[in-house]
Design a protein around this nucleic acid. Structure first.
Length: 417
RNA sequence: CGGGGCGUGGCCUAGUUGGCUAAGGCGCAUGGUUUGGGACCAUGAGAUCCUGGGUUCGAGUCCCAGCGCCCCGACCA
């Protein structure tokens, strides 16, 4: 992509209506635009990142048997009355339709939709287990949206629901889902600071689990057991008398964290509400056992920015970088420079490498500053200097060192990464 | 939803005890000089001062109400 063709512009000014680093920086760099509190447009760069995160999530869900579908955001009131959540889920956006007086909600989660859906197709133990999921925009009328992408009113969420014949089968899948989640955080560059965190299980089971990423911007406080590499949240810490639920470690480390995912054993709460049953091998009817597994691509995007940055801007992990390479030509009005840059741009594009090519007639300083702000994993510079040296300057965003490489070396280096 | 703060060209800000034509920077346009870390000069365009009431000879400035945004808290299935 040619930067001269991108219609959004980076800015030096910090937007005054945002205080979180992720929102300030993503807005300045042209990834997102704010429409209202907790409601953002994903601009071309931002959508690329969001799509990459979603794709990672999709791949890891598919690997554990997930089946992707897409359920509606617009939900009829009746489904939510069946579970009694129409009146009790107070972050529900409600929509009245004056022409026929029918009421809807914009879905904040999808148990109310997926359970009756399963009911149309699950009759026998032979039909189980199933793992439908979707990646979809969720709506929650948060009393207070905050921290940019970390707590929005409209946000992207992957929610998978598992349906089982018994608790053992649920427990098995539950562990698979945990592993898949860690794979996702690894690919998003969050593995080192993300902890499986014991949370209250509500009425369904002893614990649910959150995935908490340590970050100053986080709104939760977690207590980490460094022996087991797990954590507990503030609901649990008191029950545990300050100790680890997994070992006899009494000294847990307190940190602020962002909840980037959570998994929950729903047991029969929703299957009972809708009467979702299956017939077992003996011909007896039993309620289906359920679990749910949430993870927020948009929230991950904000969290990654909080965790991976320096004072010049974002440092995207390789798999999330909006473009693998930021190609910069210094002195666009130098014919030789322009031709050389165009040549390598085409070369890289032909190798299916995603390149953002800064072909604008701006000063070198402006281009470098904006490049660091945007934060692509690799930077390649073409200038009078590099032409004299018969190569291309290559630099990682997370390193201060640069090197001059030949075309072949450059392509190799980028393709290997 | 309780408490606090803020609202001025596209963006960031200044604007004194109410006073005359609302100021500066960024960005934008035109011309010229520049080009390895957010260049410079000149000229120019661009404002319902959040909205609605009120006080006053006179309101960006004071009062009331509303809306919006941010922060703290509560909430987070």
């Amino acid at each position: 992509m040619r930067q001269s063709k991108n219609f959004t512009k980076a800015t030096k000014e910090i937007p005054k209506d945002e205080t979180s680093f992720n929102a300030q920086t993503l807005i300045r760099a042209g990834f997102i635009d704010k429409l209202a509190a907790g409601v953002y447009t994903y601009l071309p760069y931002g959508l690329r990142v969001l799509t990459k995160i979603s794709q990672i999530v999709r791949e890891e869900m598919d690997k554990i048997g997930g089946q992707e579908l897409l359920m509606p955001a617009l939900n009829p009131k009746e489904n939510w009355e069946k579970t009694d959540r129409w009146g009790t889920f107070d972050a529900l956006f409600k929509i009245g339709n004056s022409s026929d007086s029918k009421e809807y909600t914009l879905a904040p989660t999808h148990e109310e939709i997926v359970t009756p859906l399963a009911q149309k197709h699950v009759f026998s133990y032979k039909d189980l287990p199933i793992y439908p999921y979707h990646i979809q925009t969720k709506f929650r009328n948060e009393k207070r949206a905050k921290a940019g992408l970390i707590r929005g009113r409209e946000f992207l969420m992957k929610d998978l629901y598992s349906f089982h014949v018994d608790e053992d089968d649920l427990n098995n899948f539950y562990l698979n889902a945990q592993k898949a989640y860690f794979k996702i955080f690894e690919r998003c560059g969050l593995l080192d600071m993300t902890y499986l965190t014991y949370a209250s299980g509500g009425s369904f089971s002893k614990y649910s689990h959150e995935f908490q990423t340590v970050a100053e911007a986080g709104e939760d406080t977690i207590y980490i057991c460094e022996d087991c590499s797990i954590a507990v949240n503030s609901e649990i810490i008191e029950d545990q008398k300050g100790g680890c639920p997994n070992c006899d470690n009494k000294k847990l480390k307190q940190e602020k964290a962002v909840e980037v995912g959570n998994i929950f054993k729903l047991m029969t709460k929703f299957s009972s509400a809708f009467g979702l049953e299956f017939t077992d091998e003996e011909g007896k009817k039993n309620p289906v056992i359920m679990g749910c597994y949430g993870i927020g691509p948009s929230r991950i995007m904000g969290t990654v920015v909080e965790v991976h940055h320096d004072d010049r801007g974002i440092i995207w992990p390789a798999e999330l970088s909006p473009f693998k390479v930021h190609l910069i030509e210094v002195k666009s009005d130098n014919k030789e420079v322009r031709e050389e840059a165009e040549k390598i741009y085409e070369e890289l594009v032909n190798k299916d490498i995603e390149v953002l090519y800064d072909d604008r007639e701006l000063s070198a300083g402006a281009k470098f500053a904006e490049s660091d702000l945007i934060g692509c994993t690799f930077r390649v510079v073409v200038s009078e200097k590099t032409i004299k040296k018969n190569g291309y300057e290559f630099k990682r965003r997370d390193s201060e060192k640069s090197e001059i490489l030949s075309k072949e070396e450059l392509v190799d280096k980028i393709l290997i990464a």
